[in-house]
Computed example of a mutant assay.
Amino acid sequence: MIEFKVEGDYIPMIQLLKAANLVQTGGEAQIVVAEGEVKYNGQVDYRKRLKVKAGDVVEFRGQQIKVI
């Protein structure tokens, strides 16, 4: 599990995927979210601009990111 410390109140889903080095570009992040490859707190979520906050868990391709 990757622990990611968020600066401020939240981080957009696309930026989180890039910051955790799970995708190479923002464009790739948008595609994987739009195709339903990303889970947010256990549910598939298609929102690219989703505000991920401390306590949330994002899953992508077998990796979990816990936002702290």
Rank of each mutant, 00 (worst) to 15 (best):
M1V: 15
I2E: 10
I2D: 03
E3Q: 10
E3I: 07
F4G: 02
E7G: 13
E7H: 13
E7N: 15
G8E: 03
Y10P: 06
P12Q: 02
P12S: 03
Q15I: 04
Q15P: 00
Q15D: 13
L16I: 12
L16H: 07
L16P: 08
L17F: 10
L17C: 06
K18N: 12
K18D: 14
K18R: 13
A20M: 10
N21Q: 10
N21V: 05
Q24S: 14
T25V: 01
T25P: 05
G27V: 07
E28G: 02
E28N: 01
A29F: 01
A29S: 03
Q30R: 14
Q30P: 01
I31T: 11
I31R: 12
I31K: 09
I31C: 03
V32H: 02
V33G: 08
V33I: 15
V33E: 10
A34C: 06
E35K: 14
E35T: 15
G36H: 06
G36M: 09
G36P: 07
E37K: 15
V38A: 07
K39D: 15
Y40L: 14
Y40W: 11
N41H: 01
N41R: 04
V44W: 07
D45H: 08
D45Y: 06
D45P: 03
D45M: 13
Y46N: 11
Y46Q: 01
R47S: 02
R47P: 03
K48T: 04
L50V: 01
L50I: 05
K51A: 01
V52A: 04
K53S: 11
A54K: 12
A54G: 12
V57C: 04
V58I: 14
V58L: 13
E59F: 10
F60L: 06
F60P: 03
R61H: 02
G62Y: 05
Q63K: 14
Q63T: 15
K66S: 13
K66V: 15
V67I: 10
V67H: 05
I68K: 09
